[in-house]
């Protein structure tokens, strides 16, 4: 029986820039940040109040792709092709205003849906997240 998810990867275009975005803009905490030899770095983050899951900020360059595949992946990420997940918050209007004030790009302002209120933003690479306040 599978009981938990502990790690999930987000491919990013620039690992240091992604760290700044996830930590200083989204307010995530760094779980692990350790060099892997001289060329690579294992960097994981998580939402401030969530334990037990690590989001691996994986640069495309470390993904083991062929040069052609890596170029294609970078292009798709930058275009906003990939949705990474749903993040929840206590108050979507306050969170939306805060992230906007920090320069986060939203592609959808908070809107009431049948499951709650949802907005959509992109990370610094182009990956998009749903930001949701679920209906009670």
């Amino acid at each position: 029986m599978i009981t938990k998810m502990t790690h999930t990867s987000v491919y990013v275009l620039d690992q240091e820039r992604a760290r700044d975005f996830y930590v200083n803009k989204l307010g995530f905490k760094v779980i692990t940040d350790v060099p892997m030899g001289t060329a690579h770095r294992w960097l994981t983050v998580a939402p401030q109040e969530q334990d037990g899951i690590e989001i691996v900020l994986m640069p495309v360059s470390a993904g083991g792709f062929s040069p052609e595949a890596a170029d294609t992946l970078r292009e798709l990420i930058a275009k906003g092709t990939f949705g990474v997940g749903v993040l929840t918050c206590n108050d979507i209007y306050a969170t939306y205003e805060e992230l906007k004030a920090k320069g986060v790009e939203f592609t959808k302002a908070p809107k009431k849906e049948f499951y709650g209120t949802e907005a959509v933003f992109r990370d610094d690479s182009g990956n998009w997240f749903s930001l949701a306040m679920l209906a009670e």
């Binding site: 209007y93 306050a94 205003e97 805060e98 004030a101 302002a109």
Partner: peptide, 21 residues
């Protein structure tokens, strides 16, 4: 509902500014 229409927008902005301060 767009961002500019949601309830109490100025209220939220003032509280967020205080938090960011």
């Amino acid at each position: 509902m767009t961002a500019d229409q949601y309830p109490k927008i100025y209220f939220y902005r003032r509280l967020v500014q205080a938090k960011l301060y």
